[in-house]
Design a protein around this nucleic acid. Structure first.
Lengths: 222, 222
DNA sequence: GTCTATATATGGATAGAC
DNA sequence: GTCTATCCATATATAGAC
């Protein structure tokens, strides 16, 4: 379920901040939210092209007319979702950055947050990281060129410049930092990996930093 | 273009073994091959659901009837492609294993091969690693549970047992080994990363092994 | 085995009442 | 702004000639 849609600010970046008591009641939620909510569920479950306007209409308990009024069609719904969720992620990443923890720790927090989300808000992560948007939103830029991902690469870049992270090609280093985590998320979303991701966090982080820590720091620790 | 379809054995695992002179001539190729060939191109370019039987029919210069005769429909084409390409990858991985290079070097070779393929046989990699098969082949197992991927994880597992690779949760280690490479492939396929992957190989491999080399070996090298 | 013509279903989109 | 009924394009699948 989405709490974020109406106002991104309300969903702070607190890790684990799941308002369990808020009992999502799709019936009395705003039409707008109900549409986006069920669209997310359906798109993730079946894929964009296997979901019809009629399906959304039925499951969201709204009329086709409303969907067209609000979003101009199925693609419009997908696009709205796309930008809402990117913005949601952007907020989360930004909040981590604003904590001013240092670049390495920022990367850790982002990875942990992604792992948590994969377990508790699976569909959001699935839609952002797993969907092939190019196939139904051909005019939108690919997700990995969106702000949150840019910000993540930026953190790595600054980490390199500050000496916290090993030098090298920015793409290689960024992929070395986040690639393992993203791979685990994909495996988890595909149902191949049975273990909850947070359990694997410590070990992954350990491997990862051993790979991209500058030699200087590596020695000083040893 | 596909050389593999008709007989997987013919396309050996030689890296860079591109028979440039063979001049792919879709006109006189077998109907079967022509269908699969153009289907791959179209599916990768537009996505499965944005390609109609008629599109394949036109571009492959065959009739709709032929497509149904050979594959039973669009889904049949996609499924045949899926298994052909998985088998192709499996052959490549198997050939690497058969060289008996040791587990670390085997991982390197596989990554290099994937990088090469991404540049020279882009659509094959895109279809195998980038497509969301669950959305059009809901009854097939996810690609990451297919043999080539299992074999890759198996190599890592044996590497761990032999002491060549650092101990830890198999999923974490495997993701640490291949995650960065797969991430780079995705970035490249999305067009975000402009550099050819083989150029980044050395650096990636370096980062990667620094992360997952056992402490014992690490010290002995230093 | 290959082709064309056609049937049938589905789903996106609109019109117009409330 | 919300709804229902309807239109129309598209795409899968089949039938039947060659």
């Amino acid at each position: 379920m989405l709490f974020i849609i109406v106002d991104c600010k309300t969903s702070s970046a607190r890790i684990c901040a799941m308002p369990h008591l808020k009992k999502a009641t799709p019936e009395n939620a705003s039409v707008n939210k109900r549409i986006l909510d069920t669209a997310l569920d359906l798109f993730v479950e079946r894929g964009f092209h296997n979901v019809s306007i009629h399906d959304i209409q039925k499951q969201a308990n709204v009329s086709i007319g409303s969907i067209y009024n609000h979003f101009g069609g199925k693609e419009g719904v997908a696009k709205a979702l796309y930008y809402h969720l990117i913005r949601e992620m952007e907020e989360l990443v930004k909040d981590v950055v604003d904590e001013g923890l240092g670049y390495r720790e920022s990367c850790n927090r982002i990875i942990y947050m992604l792992f948590e989300y994969t377990e508790t808000k699976r569909n959001i992560i699935a839609y952002v990281l797993h969907a092939k948007h190019q196939e139904f939103l051909p005019d939108e830029p690919p997700i990995c060129s969106s702000t949150p991902f840019k910000t993540m690469r930026n953190i790595v870049q600054q980490g390199i410049e500050s000496g916290e992270i090993r030098e090298g090609d920015p793409w290689v280093i960024a992929s070395s930092v986040f690639g393992g985590a993203i791979r685990l998320i994909h495996l988890r979303l595909d149902g191949v990996l049975k273990e909850p991701l947070p359990k694997l966090y410590d070990e992954l982080i350990d491997c990862m930093w051993q790979g991209v820590t500058p030699a200087a720091i590596q020695e000083s620790v040893a």
